[in-house]
Amino acid sequence: MSQATEESASEPSAETIREIGHDEYDPVGTFALIGLYFLILVFLWFFMYFVEFLGNDPTVVSGTAVVVALV
């Protein structure tokens, strides 16, 4: 009664217009979406690190730089 396995088949709902099996399925949309997410993550991380973190004084990093410069 429980899992809609391949045998008992997740009753193809009214909206299902085709069955796509394991071998025919190529998740290119997932690749595109996750790729886009990855690009956003990388951009935001760079923004956070270089603009917000290093741009906001004092930070540990810039503090160290000042000490090094003084020495």
Binding site: P12, E15, T16, I17, R18, E19, I20, Y25, P27, V28, G29, T30, A32, L33, I34, Y37
Partner: peptide, 25 residues
């Protein structure tokens, strides 16, 4: 999880007739 869950949603969308890189949404 992000990958598996999105891939599962896309599987549903394609069975429902979705097409393209983003059009399936």
């Amino acid at each position: 999880t992000a990958f598996t869950v999105v891939a599962s949603m896309e599987h549903g969308a394609r069975q429902r007739g979705g097409e393209g890189y983003f059009g399936w949404l």
